[in-house]
Design a protein around this nucleic acid. Sequence first.
DNA 1: CTGTTATATAACCGACTTGCTATATAACCG
DNA 2: CGGTTATATAGCAAGTCGGTTATATAACAG
Lengths: 107, 107
Amino acid sequence: MPNLDAAFSALADPTRRAILARLALGEATVMELVEPFEMTQPAISRHLKVLEGAGLIVRRVEGTKRPCRLAPTAVAEIDQWLGMLRRALETNYDRLDGVLAAMKPET
Amino acid sequence: MPNLDAAFSALADPTRRAILARLALGEATVMELVEPFEMTQPAISRHLKVLEGAGLIVRRVEGTKRPCRLAPTAVAEIDQWLGMLRRALETNYDRLDGVLAAMKPET
DNA sequence: CTGTTATATAACCGACTTGCTATATAACCG
DNA sequence: CGGTTATATAGCAAGTCGGTTATATAACAG
C-alpha cells in the first residue's frame, strides 16, 4: 500500500506538475527550476520536497547543487491504481445497455 | 486544457478513492455509499460533489435518489497527462547509463 | 395532508497548504 | 580567511479542506 495520498496530492498542484514537465526534459537543479516560474526559491524548494516525499522525483548531491530528476515509482503506483478505474469503466461501458434496459422496467 | 487540478486533488483523498473503488463495482446511491464509511451523510455528499466537479463521476435523478457511477472523462485526461511522465521516464531510463557516464568525468 | 426517507446546504472549527520574508547552512572562489 | 552562490528552514498570513451538527428540500407512502 504505497502513498497514493501523497502522490495524487503532489500532482494536484499546477506548479508541481509544471516542475515535473520540466524534469521530463531532463535533470535540473533547484535554481534552474526556480527560473521559469514567477515564484521565490523557498517556494520551489518546498514543492520539490513535496514531490520527493511523494516519490515523484529523486535528488542527488553534487557539490552545492541538488539536481532533481523524475522517479519512476510513484507513477507506477498511480498507474496501477488507475488501472482499476480503467477496467471498471471498460466493463461498465460494455454492460451499459444491459444495465439501463434492466433498470427502466423496474422503476 | 482540462481540470487536472480538480481531478488529481479529488483523487488525493482516501475516502474519495474508496468511493470510486466502490463505484467500480457498479452504480450506487448516496446512502449506499454512506453505509460502508464511518462518516456522516453530509460528508459523503460533499465528497460526491467534489468527484462530480472533477468529472470522475456522474449522477442521474431517480425519484428521491441520485445514483452515481464512474465517468470516463477525467480518467482519460489524467492518463494523457501521465503519459508524458511515462514517456520521459522510459527515455530517461534508456539514456541513464549515458547520462551518468557523461556526468562523472566532469565533476 | 402527514410522516418518513434521500439528499443537499449552511455554518462552524481545527488542521493543513502555499505563498511570502528573513535567516541558516554549506560549498565554492579568490 | 571573506564573499558569493545554492539550497534549506523557520515563522507568518490567507486560504482551502474535511469533518461535524443543524436544517432545508423534495419525493414517496399512507
